[in-house]
Amino acid sequence: MKAAFEVNGESVEVDVEPRLSLADCLRDVLGLTGTHLGCEHGVCGACTVIVDGQAVRSCLTLAVQADGERITTVEGLSPEAGLSPLQAAFRKHHALQCGFCTPGMVTTAHALLSEEPDADADRVREVLSGNICRCTGYVPIVEAVLEARAAYRKMEGES
């Protein structure tokens, strides 16, 4: 089955089995291995990607459902060199250890702050509660996301 969509600003067309998940399509067909699979049943959030601005579980989405959509993965949130302000805040606050859940945290936080650059700590915790991290205890992740708000406010001001 064919599906055409945009990934990180580039148009792609894939011909895949109808049962293929968007996560497997991104990883195995398109080579975008930054999207991770931690549970494949929609609980852990490691596979979160952004579909038309919304944080979406790519393990619970079929690749063919992405037809016509605009998808952003962690690779698409990364500048050519170095780190985005959100990523730099994660690094500064030591908001990752093993780094396996991190792409899902970054995509989820990006989707949140793009919509709500003034989200408070409770709101950040609420939104991140859909993503499981086993290493950090979440405290530094929340600190990082709160710090990154400034960069999103600035972007909003500029746009």
Partner: peptide, 21 residues
């Protein structure tokens, strides 16, 4: 010193290489 980690540069950009990759 609370040095920022070198690992983070690849892990945050989705460029880590885990076994599934």
């Amino acid at each position: 010193s609370a040095l920022e980690r070198v690992e983070d540069l690849r892990l945050l950009r989705g460029r880590g290489q885990f076994v599934a990759d």
